[in-house]
Design a binder for these strands. Structure first.
Lengths: 142, 142
DNA sequence: TAAAAGGTTGGAGTGCACTTCAAGCAAGTA
DNA sequence: TACTTGCTTGAAGTGCACTCCAACCTTTTA
């Protein structure tokens, strides 16, 4: 659940540690995504290029898991998949896209800040309503 | 932007103030929803019952606007439309559904709290990444 | 080695929340 | 009264993010 290791290193390291040949169903179990979704991510260009075994089956690396963890965070922000694909493209294009990547993340960041504020305002409304219905069953009511 | 007047009173007052016969396009302008969406909301049972003119055109009241404001808040929480419809049904069924309504709002409330936490964790990741790209253009960088 | 479990593909299907369409009535202005 | 703008309906269409299917190949277990 922590904001981990590999997320930061996805684009900058080349020597991951530990097991490095995960099957699609192992990755599905680890990420909570379905195998279908993982294949779909690859097809639309949201994965950096996944290794294959000599018979053509996918073999994911730690690096891929790190990327998926980051994508998972982006997904939580509500960022459209198309934008995530754009970001993935920028990563593939190399270092000269740093500025654009940063801009994309910053605009995402402000969306998130706005969403948090919205949610907090809905929380206020919900609390008013809930109060209004009274704390009938099991509350530590004053 | 405030958590207003009518929202709280939707289910408990009967004497709204001010103009009380809004056409569908006026309501569209006021709420930001389209006329299409307003008709759709009515069809699926998300509206409390909208008045009609003698020729059959919709005439919305302040009360309806209050309800739509509340629905807007629920929508911001990400609550599925089906659940909002369920809530609307409970309101129509009368006072004996207070407990169930409260339960529904409380479960929505905890979803919101969870969403806020999720968003805050994504914010942390975004900030790490953004930092990582460096504050190149216009930052007050240390 | 045979069966079961798991992997591959392109393409079609699903569920949600609208959104648009077609065809016709209603309301306000010159 | 003619014209324009707006409202009515049911039904079909859209875009997103998956999700499932059929037919076939690979890997693991008994």
């Amino acid at each position: 659940m922590s904001v981990t290791e590999s997320v930061q290193s996805v684009e900058s390291t080349t020597a991951p540690r530990g097991k490095d040949r995960y099957t699609i169903s192992e990755v599905a179990a680890l990420t909570g995504l379905t195998a279908h979704t993982l294949r779909w991510y690859e097809r639309i260009g949201l994965m950096p290029h996944v290794d294959r075994s000599h018979t053509g089956q996918r073999r994911f690396t730690e690096r891929d898991l790190g990327w998926l963890a980051f994508v998972g965070k982006l997904r939580l922000t509500g960022m459209p998949v198309a934008d995530m694909v754009r970001y993935a493209e920028l990563v593939r294009e190399g270092d000269h896209t740093h500025a654009e990547r940063r801009a994309l993340l910053e605009s995402t960041r402000s969306d998130v800040v706005r969403r948090i504020a919205e949610l907090q305002s809905t929380l206020a409304v919900l609390d008013l309503k809930i109060d209004h219905y009274g704390t009938i069953c099991g509350g530590v009511s004053p």
